[in-house]
Design a protein around this nucleic acid. Structure first.
Lengths: 136, 136
DNA sequence: TTCACTGCAAAACGTTTGCAAACAG
DNA sequence: CTGTTTGCAAACGTTTTGCAGTGAA
């Protein structure tokens, strides 16, 4: 899907007004918003936008590589404007989610691939612990 | 939690027949089963068991440290008999999930903690790629 | 005209909960 | 008796889908 030459405007998939609004909301937040939060914010900019369209837009933007989806546990997905490889820290007390990048993680991909016999595409490290606010 | 002395029978929470069956199902499978699969298997051993009880039992067993829950994306949780720290490889084509352990991952915990300023509890590395069957 | 996209409402899915009955200590 | 656990069904939150209407090329 959508491989090869990035088709813009031409073939299929355009950055419609709704998709643009959703993208702007995600890009405009420091936080990792849930679909519901994005919907609320998007309504503020385009009051007619629907929940389904927010979901469709998020899927489109994700497949276009413009945003990234983060999922933890059974909680609602969150969306991240940062699409470059990076790691996450999750607070086991308050649920806070922090981005950081550890170059060493990328180096482990090779090793993990050899061990698992998978053809590697990406790696992702998650640290579970207590965030600065929760560690007393 | 549940560290120190393992309270058995005494305090609260007992390994009832239903919980035992659920535990046996998880322990008896090489796969990482979903709750629905566990329910189906548990029914074979104890036909009166209900879905809710399977979920309650899984929560109990998880909190007791006897099994581990794995979640990926928005798919159903899977349950793992292996409770020791380990990493996962996920096939982006067929969804296959493989366990492996990379000692180097544990070593990265310290580093990740320093970078994120979190008090570390555990780390988890996930490799995304193509499994041996899917890499053509 | 054509074909993708939108909005709405309803459905689907995995999971949790309220409650009465059954059970164990 | 007293507190826990069960089974059932109904509720919940998140995400997807069917479909008629809209809009752009």
């Amino acid at each position: 899907m959508s491989s090869g030459t990035e088709k813009r405007g031409g073939g299929r998939g355009a950055l419609t007004r709704q998709r643009r609004v959703v993208l702007d909301v995600v890009r405009g937040s420091e936080e990792h918003l849930t679909a519901a939060e994005i919907f609320a914010a998007a309504r503020g900019r385009l009051s007619s936008i629907s929940f389904a369209t927010v979901y469709n837009s998020l899927r489109y933007l994700k497949e276009a590589g413009l945003i990234r989806e983060i999922t933890f546990g059974n909680a609602a997905s969150r969306y991240d404007r940062e699409t470059a490889r990076h790691d996450h820290a999750v607070c086991t007390a308050c649920g806070k989610l922090l981005d950081f990048d550890l170059a060493e993680t990328a180096a482990l991909m090779r090793l993990a691939a050899r061990r698992s016999r998978f053809r590697p595409q990406s790696v992702h490290l998650t640290l579970y612990g207590l965030c600065p606010d929760c560690k007393t």
